[in-house]
Structures are given as structure tokens and as C-alpha cells.
């Protein structure tokens, strides 16, 4: 197994290089090329423009420009945001804690709802609980977050006056500060978490149903094992493969942020940074965020593959 992981990590390096190349080429070749637009922007100060030209070698062919970007990247130079006049890494780091906190909590919430509800619903298919869970799930992913967000604001902020709906970094420390940070994150976390829990519940339920009627489950029951033991030991482990796949798919988003939710609750996260950077053609920021995201995608794909092997030892990786 360790040999397999090592080999996969070795493959990850060229595959990331390839991904970065594609990202770069897409950005460079697309009409209205943000690079050239920024480079020919008369308002970009000459120093930055020179640095940009040096970094990207804009007069060079694309492959040379790419190599320059790569070289800067290897040296830890992430570039310079043109809109905010700050280094890209500073800008990203400024927004990272908020993103990890809010989006991460939302993912945790989604998991902690989806797995138990999905499993329980699958053990009693077409029961009242199952029907209710399904209906809520359908509503959950039919309604966009911009809508549920406002609904939540109307109910919890306006009607009940329990929670604030403008997310802002409060200065201070200690327990009141912690409580305030929790309080203002509740709504965005709920909106995003429930939205994701909805689809995940459906996946968990379906994966459980696929396994629960297999012969070996019946055998296990026939052996006289208790229901809980059957479900947890025999069914869940085998049903976890699609679930692990989904979680691995979701994890990079913890870094990437959630654009709409961030806008509704004014959360200064990576998602809102990315969207404003795209709209403002702030390419160094876009490239940096996207590339980090790509690394996370590849990493979590590898983790998922390793987990498959653990969940189902018959899956062999060569």
C-alpha cells in the first residue's frame, strides 16, 4: 500500500503541472485575455508592469510565459493583485481563516446530518421517516442558497431577532468573542450545510439501499446478528464507497469558498475574493486560488482511492 501511495504522489506532480498548464493556457488564450489586458493597462504602475512582464514574459510565446509563472511559483512568488495593491498571498491569507471556519463548519454539518439520516432512512425504506427525509432533501436541493439565505434572514434575524446576518470580523477576544463568532456564522453555515446535506442524504440513502438487499446482508441477519451490528459492520462499510467519493469531492470547496452564500451574508471569504478578482480581471489572484484548489482536488482524490482499498480489500491497486 505505501508503495502505491508513493507512486501516486509521484504521479501527482506531473499531473498538477499539466493542470496548471491547462489553467494557464485557458486564461492566456481566451478572448479578452486578462493577462494582456492587464499588461497593456496604462494605469498599472511601470514597476508592477515590469515585474509582470518579467514574470510572465508577455512578449514571449505561451510556453515561455508559462515557464516564467512556474519559476516564480517555485520561488514562492504568488504575484501581485492589481486591484487591491497587495501581494496575492497576503490577500488570500487575509481571507483564509474565515473561509475555513464558515465553509468547513458547513461541510461538517452536512456530513453529520446526511450520514445518520441517510442510513436510518435506508433501513426503513418508504417508511414515514424515509418519506419525510426525502421530501426535505428534495426541497433542500430545489431551493437555491440565495433564496434560503433570505428566508433564514427573514425568520431568524427579522422576525425572531436571534441572529445577526452581516458577517464581520469582530475585534476582541475571550468567550464573548468566541460566542459572537459562532452566532454570526450560524446562518451561513446552516444555509450552506443544509443545502449540501440534502443531496448527500440522497446519496447515502441510495448507497445503503444498494448494499442492504445483497445476499451477504441477509446471511448476516440469518446468522442472528443484531440489526445495529449488521448495519454498522456489514452494510455501512460497503456502502461507504460512494460516500467517501462524495466527501473527497467536497473537501476542496472548504478552501474554495461559496460565492453566493458569501455574498448574501457579506462573508469576506475566498469565494468572494475569487469572484471579484474574476470580474476585475485580477488574474494573479484567480490563478493562485485556482491552483491551490487544484492541488487539493488531486490530494483528496488520492486519499479517496486509499480509503477505497481499506473499505473493500478486494479492490487492488497496482
Amino acid at each position: 500500500m505505501s508503495q502505491y501511495i508513493l507512486r501516486r504522489l509521484m504521479i501527482a506532480i506531473p499531473s498538477l503541472l499539466g493542470i496548471s498548464l491547462v489553467l494557464f493556457v485557458v486564461l492566456a488564450l481566451a478572448p479578452g485575455d486578462p493577462f494582456s489586458e492587464l499588461a497593456t493597462n496604462p494605469n498599472v504602475p511601470p514597476g508592477v508592469q515590469a515585474a509582470l512582464r518579467a514574470k510572465f514574459g508577455l512578449d514571449d510565446p505561451i510556453y515561455l510565459r508559462y515557464l516564467h509563472w512556474l519559476a516564480a511559483m517555485v520561488h514562492g512568488d504568488w504575484g501581485f493583485s492589481f486591484v487591491s495593491r497587495i501581494d496575492v498571498d497576503t490577500l488570500i491569507l487575509q481571507r483564509l481563516p474565515t473561509t475555513l471556519y464558515v465553509i468547513g463548519s458547513a461541510q461538517l454539518l452536512a456530513l453529520s446530518i446526511a450520514i445518520p439520516v441517510g442510513v436510518y432512512a435506508a433501513t426503513r425504506p418508504y417508511s414515514l421517516f424515509d418519506q419525510l427525509a426525502n421530501t426535505f432533501a428534495f426541497i433542500g436541493f430545489s431551493l437555491p442558497t440565495f433564496f434560503t439565505g433570505i428566508l433564514f434572514i427573514l425568520v431568524f434575524s427579522v422576525k425572531l431577532d436571534w441572529l445577526p446576518f452581516v458577517y464581520t470580523e469582530v475585534p476582541g477576544s475571550g468567550i464573548p468573542w468566541v460566542l459572537e463568532m459562532i452566532r454570526q456564522a450560524i446562518m451561513p453555515v446552516m444555509v450552506l450545510g443544509l443545502f449540501q446535506a440534502a443531496s448527500m442524504t440522497r446519496f447515502v440513502r441510495s448507497a445503503m439501499l444498494d448494499v442492504i438487499r445483497l445476499d451477504y446482508v441477509t446471511t448476516a441477519r440469518a446468522k442472528g446478528l443484531g440489526q445495529t451490528k449488521v448495519i454498522v459492520k456489514h452494510v455501512m462499510r460497503n456502502a461507504m464507497i460512494p460516500v467517501v467519493t462524495l466527501i473527497a469531492l467536497q473537501m476542496p470547496a472548504v478552501f474554495g469558498g461559496a460565492i453566493v452564500t458569501e455574498q448574501i451574508f457579506r462573508i469576506p471569504g475566498i469565494g468572494s475574493l475569487l469572484i471579484s478578482s474574476i470580474l476585475a480581471n485580477d488574474t494573479p489572484v484567480v490563478m493562485a486560488v485556482t491552483f491551490v484548489f487544484a492541488c487539493l482536488v488531486v490530494l483528496f482524490n488520492l486519499i479517496a482511492d486509499v480509503l477505497y482499498g481499506w473499505l473493500d480489500p478486494r479492490i487492488s491497486f497496482r
Partner: peptide
């Protein structure tokens, strides 16, 4: 504080007093 939209800004002041 920046960002968001005008309607929710009005809500934050007139309705909730945030």
C-alpha cells in the same frame, strides 16, 4: 463594512438594527 446588496443593507439598519 462593504459588500452585499442594497435591500439587505436596508434590512440590517431598518429592520434588525445591526
Amino acid at each position: 463594512k462593504g459588500g452585499g446588496d442594497a435591500v439587505s443593507a436596508a434590512r440590517a439598519v431598518i429592520q434588525t438594527g445591526e
